[in-house]
Design a protein around this nucleic acid. Sequence first.
DNA 1: TCAGTAAAATAACAAGTGTTATAAACCTGA
DNA 2: TCAGGTTTATAACACTTGTTATTTTACTGA
Lengths: 185, 185
Amino acid sequence: MARKESITMQLILDTAFAMTRQEGFANVTARKVAAQAGCSTQPIFRVYKNMDELWDAVYDRAAAFFQDYYGLYPRMGKAPFVNLGMAYIAFAREEKHLFELLFASDQENRKSMYELLNGANGNVVSEINLAKAAGCPDPGDLFMKMWIFIHGAACMTLTGDYDLSEVQTLALLERSYEAFAAAHR
Amino acid sequence: MARKESITMQLILDTAFAMTRQEGFANVTARKVAAQAGCSTQPIFRVYKNMDELWDAVYDRAAAFFQDYYGLYPRMGKAPFVNLGMAYIAFAREEKHLFELLFASDQENRKSMYELLNGANGNVVSEINLAKAAGCPDPGDLFMKMWIFIHGAACMTLTGDYDLSEVQTLALLERSYEAFAAAHR
DNA sequence: TCAGTAAAATAACAAGTGTTATAAACCTGA
DNA sequence: TCAGGTTTATAACACTTGTTATTTTACTGA
């Protein structure tokens, strides 16, 4: 019937995502994706109506990527929220552009931070339950405080204003949790 | 000798700065500045060698603007760092684009966060001295923790993930200071 | 008054952008 | 084999960007 498809949606999304990881979506253009994928710009606009649709796809991919990243990140902290926070800060350091896309940009189609963190596995809910089980009277409030702190460290990483080692960060988060939790008693 | 200058450096910088305030420097183009200033693009490049130089000028102006903003911001907090933090967070809410330019972008010519905060008046140093006078054993460390927290809240306002009132924010910062300070004892 | 000179306006260039028209390539059912 | 239809490549369009010739304007010292 017709010519066989050689440039798949997969290939285009893979390429655009890889470029976003390396240089941010602001530097992803139709021609650059095409060059990287070894084709013309035509297949891109066959698969995605326009660049906005490609952005949506890259965004969803980044969200899934973060979920995987958290899933694979080693558990080193004992206090609630600390493991999630460690992964978050490491993600900011190692995946600057993805972090920006997901957590530090003000796009139209962006999900809320809570939605992204909680993901499909209910990461946040689990941690809040942990805090509740540990006897915290207001675990939601504690989460808010911890997350403001953690987000602050992550954002400072982006601009180079925070540069503590993993070990130091772990201690910082554990102690901050302790400080916030103590204030609740 | 020559024609009188009608488009001054002042006018161009004022215009570019006002536009940056409203829509961010990413949306400031030579033609748009010219249109706003009621002239052609030529005077811009007479005064500034290129757009990068204009960026530098706008950046310095923004830094000075933040200093003024802090100077005029009402003192409502008692604990060290709280007033500075309140102004910082309000600045993020009210001057989104300037905040981004100064504190949440990763440009080449950007100053460090500490430099910007401390300014010409030694704002940070004063606050650290206050904490020391209040008997804090490690005021530098306390500042770091407080500032991570404050920066987190400010960055969340940018993305709409933080939306507490001024009164609530004040209470949050005061209590956080207490929590961090208590952990130092 | 008028020549010289600096500033400003006009217009253009070269890149780079998203997107689309057109033409070539290629696969498959008949 | 070959006609129809889909995918792809090639070009092009329309637009925006920074930046720079070129020309016009207007001021001032003589």
